[in-house]
């Protein structure tokens, strides 16, 4: 019984890695552009379908497909920011931000429904999906969840390195600090925002690959990913990259514990933990403005 419980906790922690991956892009856009993109989850699902199509059409592995779509994803994010999202950031009126990204979410979801129908899909990664490792104490972990967690840590590490060790990273942090000052000294925030969104789109492509292998997805899965990513970002401390790993693990473990009670409590437990944290400890969880 105890072993079973411990096992669940470990699974929850590993699943948290996937959630952190969902959240890391949202965290970046919140931190840099103060942009809460309601379509974030739908972009993840969209990317999963792109990967699905590539894998079926070319018969390649999802990981290779992911590598192929990384550059186009960056361009897509860059243009998305340049053409559309730039118009809705930087205003104290949040209405356009919410409604435009909400509209995008509906457009993507219904576009996918037209293109692919409502059936759930999955990315196939061969034996990797079923292989598992025996750890001590009766704990068994799937190889793929372990890889996902490792990939999440690596992704956050690389992003952190990029932000704090590269010249573009410094510019992104500068714009995040004081966007008006950046424009005053000739550091074009518009361009930096577009680059940041390009990076966000790359994280979306990466998380789409891992999500697609790990779980089923269908055109209407977007909001679930959004809400999870949102909760992770808020619980992990807004804009904090390593915080997303912490937040992801919190949600993952909560869901694992919830699933012990009743399978239907799995999702509910994550949401309830989020609301509880919000009530008990709102300081430091609120947006800095």
């Amino acid at each position: 019984m105890f072993n079973g419980f411990l096992n669940q906790i470990v699974q929850g922690i590993l699943h948290g890695g996937l959630y952190a991956m969902f959240a890391v892009g949202l965290s970046l856009s919140v931190g840099v552009m103060r942009l809460i993109n309601i379509a974030h989850g739908d972009f993840i699902v969209l990317a999963s379908f792109v990967l699905f199509t590539l894998c079926t059409a070319l018969g390649i592995s999802p990981f290779l497909a992911m590598l192929i779509i990384l550059p186009p994803a960056f361009v897509f994010g860059y243009l998305m920011q340049h053409v559309l999202l730039q118009k809705i950031v930087g205003s104290s009126n949040i209405l356009p931000m919410i409604l435009v990204t909400f509209g995008l979410s509906i457009i993507i979801e219904n576009g996918l429904l037209i293109g692919y129908g409502p059936n759930p899909r999955k990315l196939l990664a061969g034996d990797l999906q079923i292989a598992s490792l025996q750890l001590g104490g009766g704990v068994t972990v799937g190889l793929f969840p372990l890889i996902t967690f490792g990939a999440a840590v690596a992704l956050i590490f690389l992003l952190d390195l990029f932000l704090y060790r590269s010249r573009i990273g410094a510019k992104i942090r500068a714009v995040s600090d004081d966007v008006d000052a950046a424009d005053l000294i000739g550091l074009s925030s518009k361009r930096i925002y577009a680059i940041a969104m390009g990076i966000v789109a790359m994280t979306i492509a990466i998380s789409a690959c891992f999500m697609g292998i790990r779980t089923n997805f269908d055109p209407s899965s977007g909001p679930t990913q959004l809400l999870t990513a949102f909760e992770v970002v808020v619980m992990g401390g807004l804009g904090s990259l390593w915080g997303t790993l912490f937040g992801g693990i919190m949600i993952g473990v909560a869901q694992a514990v919830g699933a012990q009670i009743d399978l239907a409590w799995e999702v509910l437990a994550g949401h309830l933990l989020f609301l509880l944290v919000l009530v008990v400890r709102p300081q430091g969880l609120l947006p800095k403005e």
Partner: peptide
């Protein structure tokens, strides 16, 4: 407990 866009998504949760 939340503000602005956070409140919006909070209501969804």
């Amino acid at each position: 407990r939340m503000r602005a866009a956070y409140l919006a998504i909070g209501t969804w949760v």
